[in-house]
Simulated assay, not measured.
Amino acid sequence: MASRRLRLLLLGYLGVFCYHKVTGIAIETDNKNVKAEEFKEAILSCKHKFSKGMSLRIEWKKIQSQEVSFVYYNGEFTGDLKDRAEMLNTGIRIRNVTRKDSGTYRCEISAKSEEGQRLGEATITLTVLVPPTTPICVVPNSAMTGTVVELSCKEAEGSPPSEYQWYKNGVALLEKTGTGSARTANITYTMNKKSGTLIFNTVSKNDTGEYFCVASNGIGLPQKCSMKRMQVDDLNVSGIIAAVVIVALVMALCGLGVLYAQKKGYFTKESSSQKSNSQSTSEKDFKHTKSFVI
């Protein structure tokens, strides 16, 4: 009997809870992926179909990784947007956007009705577009034929990430497509436009020239690094052999000089002279000691 009453009581509570449950409502946005250039404005729209007389609670949140922070709460903006944002009905306008404003935003609207609490939300992604800065190019001053040589080009400010184009003597280098066309058949390098590397697997004297790189991402003006010269020379085998021969001759002459000195007895005379000096010193010390004893 007691268990039956407990069941009825639980059913009653569930019935009340279901009657006052939170029901969903449709929230719309004009653009789920908003893109805005840095230092300009961005509009994040959030629309609903509630009647004008209803009391609404509006909140905006920013989602970053596992963290959720308030952007608009209790009728005012918070954090970095406090002095740079304003409400447009239930949407927001952000002035002078920076790259730090990039992220995912969530609009949440709740209202009370006869059916209970009603809640709806919309998620919007904001991407702040940033032009590239002057890239840093690494070009070796010299290289030997037949070796592997890598040139690099990189800049880290652009959003979206920049792509890179290498130039030699003012002419754009072709990208090896791997299609086997006659135009790219003689290309001896590999250019990666995403990473900005230019690799010569077996560099030759024909690769000598003035190199520079251009970074671009479709935002603002493309940026290029200063031109740098790479000189490719053949390995000077004759010069290396001549140097080895000279070193060997110097070492041989030094050895002959030592042998000649030994035959002439220069080292023996020097050692005997040191010995006689040592003996005379000992005799003087002995005489001094003897006189002291007397």
Rank of each mutant, 00 (worst) to 15 (best):
R183Q: 12
V128S: 03
E67M: 07
D233H: 09
D285V: 04
L253K: 09
G220Q: 11
L259Q: 11
C225V: 02
T177P: 13
V171P: 13
F17V: 05
E270F: 01
C153S: 04
L253F: 09
K62E: 10
L9F: 01
E86C: 03
T29D: 12
C107E: 04
K62Y: 06
A172N: 05
N201K: 14
E41P: 06
Q117P: 10
T23S: 13
A261P: 08
D83C: 00
A36Q: 07
P160T: 00
A243G: 05
Q279T: 05
C153I: 00
L151P: 00
I43N: 14
E121P: 10
T188G: 13
N217R: 10
S272W: 15
Y13I: 07
G265L: 14
E283Q: 12
F17W: 15
K52T: 07
I199Q: 13
T90I: 04
V258A: 09
L198Q: 14
I63P: 14
G79W: 02
T208E: 15
E283G: 06
K290N: 07
G75C: 15
V244I: 04
T29E: 15
R84W: 03
C254A: 11
I199C: 07
S113R: 11
I63A: 06
S195Q: 12
G255D: 10
C137Q: 07
C107Q: 06
G178K: 09
L44R: 01
T90A: 13
Y260P: 14
R229A: 04
A172C: 06
R118I: 00
N31H: 06
T190D: 15
P161M: 01
K112E: 12
G196V: 02
G91T: 03
N206W: 10
G24T: 03
D101T: 00
A26K: 07
P132S: 03
N169C: 09
S55E: 14
N31P: 08
S102P: 13
S152P: 05
R5M: 08
S280Q: 08
S152T: 02
E38A: 02
T147C: 05
T208N: 12
R106C: 02
Y266A: 09
W60S: 09
A252E: 08
F70M: 12
G239A: 10
T134C: 15
A172M: 14
E163W: 00
